[in-house]
């Protein structure tokens, strides 16, 4: 079973620090990492390969450094990695991104077909989760988003069943192959990579494609030019008059909080009613 995983390199927004006074990002503090959700997507692909055989290929659009993210995927167990990197891709919103990735996937499918495309639920630099369904629409295959479990894969009948996470529950949905899944973290634990994978990754160099390597690309749909959305104004979040700071030693602070909370009796009556 040939599985393609779209992966993105993102600034580690958990680490990225924001200067509270200037509201500016301290980018230096944010190392670039493999989008955590994509790591789970690759892990899932590797798991499927173990059962059904085939090949796991990862695809990434980004700057040259993004090949580090691809190497991480090889550590997890991906067979091949492709990086599409070109100034003309830069500044893409999700529509332009899905177009570029779609074009790259098309080119890959020339040599061997794709049974399944995996994406992360979202990329933590934007949390949009729009790229996956976009790619699916362009490929003309069904998108199944927020997948927390693959129930069954039936290659005979080219079908699979998955659990899609929805508000307070999940749905069991069946789809024909090929289709595209975006995965949640619950779907698996990313295993500690075995040493042979580490060695392979350390020596691995992904294939890098520019726009010119892709077939019949409409340049107008790429990068900034191909992005309908643009950022208008930016402004710091409205500051309220600010908190009344409770001074004094811890004892005093504690007793003040306790009393100001207990004044709000309704809090407890409401609760009591349950």
């Amino acid at each position: 079973m040939n599985i393609l995983v779209c992966i993105k390199q993102v600034p580690d927004t958990k680490i990225i620090k924001v200067n509270p006074k200037t509201n500016t990002l301290d980018r230096s503090s944010a190392p670039a990492i493999l989008n955590p959700y994509d790591a789970h997507a690759v892990e899932e692909a590797v798991g499927l390969r173990a059962v059904h055989g085939g090949k796991v290929t990862v695809l990434c659009m980004g700057p040259p450094q993004a090949k580090e993210a691809i190497k991480k995927c090889v550590e997890i167990g991906a067979d091949e990695g492709f990086l599409i990197s070109d100034r003309r891709f830069a500044g893409a919103d999700t529509l332009a991104t899905s177009y570029a990735l779609y074009k790259a996937i098309q080119k890959m499918m020339v040599d061997d077909g794709v049974d399944l495309v995996l994406c992360g639920k979202h990329a933590i630099d934007g949390d949009t989760g729009q790229t996956g369904p976009g790619i699916a629409r362009r490929l003309g295959i069904p998108p199944l988003t927020n997948v927390i479990k693959i129930e069954e894969v039936d290659l005979e009948n080219q079908q699979m069943k998955v659990h899609r996470k929805i508000e307070n529950g999940y749905e069991l949905i069946q789809s024909s192959l090929p289709c595209l899944l975006t995965v949640e973290k619950e779907i698996n634990e990313v295993a500690y990579s075995p040493l042979p994978n580490m060695l392979r990754a350390a020596r691995y160099t992904p294939t890098i494609w520019t726009v010119d390597d892709l077939n019949d690309v409409d340049i107008k749909q790429l990068g900034l030019k191909g992005s309908p959305t643009i950022v208008g104004k930016m402004w710091p979040p409205a500051k309220s008059e600010g908190a009344n700071i409770i001074e004094g030693d811890v004892k005093k602070q504690v007793s003040e909080i306790v009393s100001l909370v207990l004044e709000k009796r309704e809090l407890f009556e409401v609760k009591g009613g349950e």
Binding site: Y192, S193, P194, L195, P196, M198, L199
Partner: peptide, 9 residues
């Protein structure tokens, strides 16, 4: 021996 699976080299 490393702490990784199949960790000998």
């Amino acid at each position: 021996r490393t702490d990784r699976p199949d960790g000998d080299v």
